[in-house]
Simulated scan of single mutants.
Amino acid sequence: MGAITDVPGIRVGQVQEVGGGWLTGVTVVLPPPGTVGSVDVQGGGPATHETDALDPTTLVSTVDAVVLTGGSAYGLASAAGAQRWCEENGRGFAVPGGVVPIVPAAAIFDLGRGGDFSARPTPDMGYAAAAAAGRQVEGHGVDRGNVGAGTGAVIGRTYKGGVGTASATLPGGVVVGALAVVNALGLPFEPARQAAAPEGGPLLNTTLVVVATNAVLDPAECKRTAAAAHAGLARALNPSHTLADGDTVFCLATGAVALDRSTGTARQISLVALQSAAADVVHAAILDGIACAEPVRTPAGDYGAFGTT
């Protein structure tokens, strides 16, 4: 199925805490310097940080790291650690006296699944995940399942979710990859409606995705690619994009391979092919995250201690 790291220059670092009340973690996607980025949020309950900075109309078009984290809104503190690592390594928007790293983040809800509601990702965990990404070699393998931000992930409020990844290569050398953290209300099969029954307890869910490509895209094209990639999420999970989901897709374009823009029609065809592939790899990454999760079933609606064996 490939991995998001099949896109040259993309690295992934992951850390997690399990046991002693903990069941959560952080995943950092580290692109090469100069990578253009944007985001599209279609869930009704997102927990995000710095996503406004990725609007195509804003000043800065590049992204230094993307943080995916557990801990709901509390876990967004982990982005500060990743930002600190980027600053120490000279990654960021140049300003007088230094740099300001652009580090957007998004979180899933996993609070209390290890038994301790206060056990949530910290800035130090974000720093460690970014440092782990920085140590990786080109084209490295990506751990899947209950690791990083997917450590405490659940789908359908009953089964384990997790981290998944996939990639595809298009004619002309364009590579499109995706990494997903699947913590969804929906399921990839018919019982999704049963999982959404009111007696199951509160609806607290999110699927987070990073799509990466080596194509040259401007911020508006990244935004449109992130939006198109949501189609893969909807294909994989039923239901998706609900009021209680924080479904969010980031898009990163490293700019190494030019698309055919010789005519207006050629540009459209190139972008449609890339965006269609983005939806496909998101679909595959979500199913991969579910398939690689630990095969554990919990009582429906149980948001208490969530075992890992």
Results as ranks from 00 to 15, higher is better:
residue 6 D to R: 07
residue 11 R to K: 15
residue 16 Q to I: 07
residue 19 G to A: 14
residue 20 G to W: 01
residue 33 P to F: 04
residue 33 P to H: 07
residue 34 G to L: 08
residue 36 V to C: 08
residue 43 G to C: 03
residue 43 G to A: 05
residue 44 G to S: 02
residue 48 T to V: 09
residue 51 T to V: 14
residue 63 V to W: 01
residue 68 L to I: 07
residue 74 Y to V: 10
residue 75 G to I: 04
residue 75 G to P: 04
residue 78 S to P: 07
residue 85 W to S: 00
residue 90 G to Q: 05
residue 92 G to D: 02
residue 102 I to C: 07
residue 115 G to D: 00
residue 117 F to Y: 12
residue 120 R to T: 11
residue 123 P to I: 09
residue 138 E to D: 11
residue 149 A to T: 02
residue 151 T to N: 06
residue 168 A to R: 11
residue 168 A to K: 12
residue 172 G to K: 15
residue 173 G to P: 09
residue 177 G to A: 12
residue 177 G to P: 08
residue 179 L to F: 07
residue 180 A to E: 08
residue 184 A to M: 11
residue 194 Q to N: 14
residue 198 P to S: 12
residue 199 E to C: 13
residue 202 P to N: 13
residue 204 L to M: 13
residue 215 A to I: 08
residue 221 E to Y: 09
residue 222 C to P: 08
residue 222 C to Y: 05
residue 228 A to I: 03
residue 241 H to I: 02
residue 244 A to V: 06
residue 248 T to A: 04
residue 250 F to V: 02
residue 252 L to T: 01
residue 254 T to V: 05
residue 254 T to S: 02
residue 257 V to C: 11
residue 261 R to L: 12
residue 265 T to E: 10
residue 265 T to M: 10
residue 267 R to A: 06
residue 269 I to P: 11
residue 274 L to H: 04
residue 286 I to A: 04
residue 290 I to C: 09
residue 291 A to H: 05
residue 292 C to T: 13
residue 298 T to V: 13
residue 301 G to R: 10
residue 303 Y to M: 14
